[in-house]
Amino acid sequence: MYKQLSSGVKISITRSISTSFESYLASIDWDEEKFSMENFMENWQKYFTESAAWFDKVPQEVLLSTEFHAEIAKKMDEVIAKVLSEEPTAKQIASIDKMQKQLGTNYSYDCKAEAAYVEQLLKEKLK
């Protein structure tokens, strides 16, 4: 069912997963101890029903299908794995290192999305 959707809808679904995942992680300060798949799923459901452009473009019978839910779960696993494995950029690393020296902090980060979170956090501290 997922494969039958237009490429634009599939891209929008992927984007909604990554956006809501990164937003959820930011809301828990990227703290693995606070992570709850149940809370993330609630967050994602709220995001896609209120903000995602794709939700209104998928027929109701598809949205209610167990096959579609299984395909979305697989897609979520893929997107989350990609978000968590994408390396921080050299520019992010340099920016974070510079700000951490200024602030005397030592935040760690493991992926590009977490580096973006740390970079924004440090920018806020410098204001």
Rank of each mutant, 00 (worst) to 15 (best):
D31E: 05
D31N: 08
D31R: 09
D31A: 02
E32A: 15
E32Q: 10
E32L: 14
E33S: 04
E33M: 08
E33N: 15
E33V: 04
F35H: 04
F35V: 03
S36Y: 02
S36A: 00
S36V: 00
S36H: 02
M37P: 00
M37I: 09
M37Q: 10
E38D: 15
E38P: 08
N39G: 10
N39A: 10
N39P: 02
F40N: 01
F40Q: 00
F40W: 04
M41N: 11
M41K: 10
M41C: 12
N43S: 11
W44F: 13
W44V: 07
W44R: 03
K46G: 14
K46F: 15
K46I: 15
K46Y: 08
Y47G: 12
Y47V: 10
Y47Q: 07
Y47S: 11
Y47A: 05
F48A: 11
T49H: 06
E50D: 13
E50Q: 07
S51F: 03
A52P: 06
A52W: 03
A53W: 10
A53P: 13
W54L: 12
W54T: 12
W54A: 13
F55H: 13
F55R: 15
D56G: 13
D56I: 10
D56P: 07
K57T: 08
K57I: 04
V58G: 06
V58M: 06
P59A: 02
P59S: 00
Q60D: 15
Q60E: 15
Q60R: 14
Q60A: 15
E61L: 05
E61V: 11
V62K: 07
L63Y: 09
L64Q: 14
L64S: 15
L64V: 06
L64T: 10
L64R: 14
L64P: 08
S65F: 08
T66G: 01
T66S: 13
E67F: 08
E67S: 12
F68M: 12
F68P: 14
F68K: 13
H69D: 12
H69N: 15
H69C: 14
A70S: 04
A70M: 10
A70G: 06
E71F: 02
A73S: 09
A73L: 12
A73E: 10
K74A: 12
K75H: 11
K75S: 08
M76S: 07
D77T: 06
D77Y: 00
E78S: 09
E78C: 06
E78T: 06
E78Q: 09
E78W: 07
E78M: 09
E78I: 06
V79A: 10
I80G: 14
I80N: 09
A81Y: 01
A81G: 03
A81T: 09
K82W: 01
K82L: 04
K82C: 05
K82E: 13
V83D: 13
V83H: 07
L84W: 07
L84Q: 07
E86C: 02
E86M: 08
E87Q: 13
P88Y: 01
P88Q: 02
P88C: 04
P88A: 01
T89D: 00
T89S: 05
T89V: 01
K91H: 05
K91S: 03
Q92W: 09
Q92I: 03
Q92A: 11
Q92D: 06
Q92G: 05
I93Y: 09
I93P: 03
I93M: 07
I93H: 03
A94Q: 08
S95H: 04
S95Y: 00
S95G: 03
I96R: 02
